[in-house]
């Protein structure tokens, strides 16, 4: 089972790390946590549930990424995860 890493730590971007796990857990570290932390969590939960992923650990290191960027980074991570980990 491989760890997937997508995105960057540049301003307005985020680094998403995705790993298979026993249950879904989401860790968020954000430079704008107070203002947007809840929203970031909501975006991540929505994308995971759209893919019906329930057993992954998602870490989001956020540098002020907008919703679309967080969504896109996670989408890429999930696609790679499905390829590499055979839909685990």
């Amino acid at each position: 089972m491989k760890t997937i890493v997508v995105g960057s730590l540049e301003s307005s971007d985020c680094l998403i790390t995705l790993q298979p796990a026993d249950k879904t857990t989401i860790d968020i570290e954000s430079v704008v946590y107070d203002a947007y932390g809840k929203r970031i969590r909501h975006v991540i939960e929505r994308v995971l549930s759209a893919h019906q992923l329930t057993r992954v650990h998602v870490r989001c290191q956020d540098k002020g990424a907008l919703d679309y960027a967080i969504e896109a980074r996670l989408e890429t991570a999930i696609k790679r995860h499905k390829e590499v980990n055979h839909g685990a």
Binding site: G7, Y68, E71, A72, T76, K79, R80
Partner: peptide
């Protein structure tokens, strides 16, 4: 793949 997903998400949303 990151570029494709990011660009698609941006243009779709904004």
């Amino acid at each position: 793949d990151e570029a494709r997903d990011l660009t698609r998400a941006f243009i779709t949303k904004h």
